[in-house]
Structure formats: C-alpha cells, structure tokens
C-alpha cells in the first residue's frame, strides 16, 4: 500500500501542487498526510473518494482514507 501511494498516487497529486505521505494502513483504514495545495483544498473529500476507487481498482482493497492536513505555517492560523 505504501509503495502504491508513493509511486502511483503521490506523483499525480504532486503534479497539481499537492502532496501526500503515507502514515499507516491498519484494518482497512489508510492514514495519509496531505500537504501543499491539498492541505487547504476545499474539496479534498472528492479526491479521497477518487483515491479509494483507484486503490480498489489497482490493489483490489477496499480502504477508508483518514486524511491529516498539514498546512504550511503561513496558512496555519489557530
């Protein structure tokens, strides 16, 4: 799963100024960190749906993605 995220999905998100990093995959829950443009994307959920479908098609696994957003410091107002 990590290999798939790093080699297949991450380059596509990077092409859009986004960034995804693998954190863990346990019991069908795939935890990913999103940075860059993804970190503030208003419609990230649509992308997560798409990623879940890509994983199902390519790896045959049904996953639920837990997204952790890591905004850069200049967008990270508390």
């Amino acid at each position: 799963m990590e290999d798939y995220i790093v080699k297949t999905l991450a380059p596509k998100l990077r092409g859009d100024g986004g960034w995804v990093e693998f954190v863990s995959y346990e019991n069908g829950v795939l935890t990913l960190v999103f940075r860059g443009e993804c970190s503030k994307c208003l419609i990230l959920n649509r992308c997560l749906d798409w990623m879940e479908k890509e994983i199902l098609r390519d790896l045959g696994e049904t996953v639920r993605i837990e997204a952790i957003r890591r905004k850069p410091y200049f967008w990270d107002m508390a």
């Binding site: 100024g17 443009e37 993804c38 208003l42 749906d49 798409w50």
Partner: peptide, 20 residues
C-alpha cells in the same frame, strides 16, 4: 484541470479550484 487555475486573481476561478 488544475488545482491552481490560470489566474488566481479571478475570484470565479478560485471558487471552482480543485482536482475533482
């Protein structure tokens, strides 16, 4: 389609940005 539109100064572009 880009998450970052041609021109960020156009508010309509910004309102519709995103990969999907």
């Amino acid at each position: 389609n880009r998450s970052k539109p041609d021109d960020e100064r156009n508010p309509e572009s910004m309102a519709s940005r995103g990969c999907r």
